[in-house]
């Protein structure tokens, strides 16, 4: 049985970590991009961002004041039992959000969409979002928080099978150019693409591909991995870099997730994570131990399963 107090502590600790410490895979990705950047201004922007990551770590202050929409992703082992159950877990995560907002401090970004009421704690109706997934043969829970800006860099389009790979490339370029100008998308960022599913699934897959996969990770399907590499290369050859200045630093990495879709359609979503890609994961073990993990490992083989029963895929 996992004590609920440990769940709340883990949720609070990763909120602090995500806000202040840039993930290592992302920082290394930015450093690698900088060595190829030939645009003076784009290079200068990357340099300033790297200094900013250092300043945040040294001062223990948030790397970006736009908290975005802080939220949680929970992966629960099938054998995990939580004190008070999942209702208690959701309460703990909402409490941790409010407490971290006051203590770090994070900017209270969450407001009512019409009357703009702000509770000053990033908690409100349907906020923070808590998404769940499950994992067989495990008694731990993984909690990941993501603080992603939310105003620019995302779009959705219904394409059709006949549009093919050309259609995917065009829409990808459309989004990169539309939101890349003046750096509205806060590039270079990890770009996530959702292909297929129903409309909502398509959006969710693309968002999770951007926010829950690390720089350097490849889709296990070689055909999709090749498309990831091709789109990354394409994004970096537009001629646009950080902040929309002349350069090449647009896409730190491109991640694609697919879902079976309507036979007549090929829906596509594109999501740009931030130049301050804030994400942190902790595993809460059955004995209450909290272990920080550099990779959310959200898209497990079980998560991407493509057959009726998971066991059919397991080795004999």
């Amino acid at each position: 049985m996992i004590a609920i107090e440990r769940v709340e502590k883990a949720a609070y600790d990763i909120m602090v970590k995500a806000g202040i410490e840039i993930p290592q895979d992302y920082e290394q990705g930015i450093r690698a991009m900088q060595t190829h950047e030939k645009g003076d201004l784009s290079y200068f922007v990357l340099e300033a961002m790297l200094e900013n990551y250092d300043a945040a770590r040294e001062d223990r202050r948030p790397m970006c004041a736009d908290t975005g929409l802080p939220r949680y992703y929970v992966k629960a082992g099938n054998e995990a039992r939580i004190e008070g159950g999942f209702i208690a877990l959701e309460t703990a995560l909402r409490l941790a959000t409010a407490r971290a907002t006051q203590d770090i401090p994070l900017r209270p970004n969450r407001v009512h969409p019409i009357n703009r009421q702000d509770n000053n704690n990033n908690v409100g109706i349907n906020a923070p979002e808590i998404d769940f997934s499950f994992e067989p043969d495990a008694d731990w829970i993984d909690i990941t928080t993501v603080h992603k800006g939310g105003l620019f860099g995302t779009d959705y389009r219904m394409l059709f099978p006949g549009d093919g790979i050309d259609g995917i490339k065009r829409f990808f370029l459309d989004v990169m150019i539309a939101f890349g100008k003046r750096g509205l998308a806060c590039q270079p960022a990890i770009v996530g693409i959702g292909l297929g599913g129903s409309k909502d699934t398509c959006m969710v897959l693309g968002k999770q591909a951007a926010c829950l996969r690390t720089v350097g990770d490849k889709n296990p399907d070689p055909e999709i991995a090749a498309l990831e590499a091709e789109l990354k290369e394409m994004g970096n050859s537009i001629g646009m870099g950080a902040m929309g200045f002349v350069g090449s630093s647009m896409v730190v990495d491109c991640h694609i997730e697919v879902g079976y879709t309507h036979t007549g359609g090929m829906p596509m979503s594109v999501h740009s994570f931030c130049l301050s890609s804030r994400r942190a994961t902790a595993r809460v073990h059955n004995d209450g131990r909290i272990e920080f993990r550099p990779d959310p490992a959200w898209f497990t083989p079980y998560m991407r399963r493509n057959t009726v029963a998971w066991q059919e895929l397991m080795p004999a």
């Binding site: 200068f44 922007v45 990357l46 300033a48 961002m49 200094e51 900013n52 990551y53 300043a55 945040a56 001062d59 202050r61 948030p62 790397m63 970006c64 004041a65 736009d66 209270p108 407001v111 702000d118 000053n120 750096g183 806060c186 950080a242 902040m243 931030c274 130049l275 301050s276």
Partner: peptide
Amino acid sequence: VGYGTGALLGRGIKSVEDVFWLDELG
């Protein structure tokens, strides 16, 4: 710059001299 240099800009703030309309606007 970069739009995410919040920590560097935060370092540059020596003090808060005043806040207006805090109750009304958040």
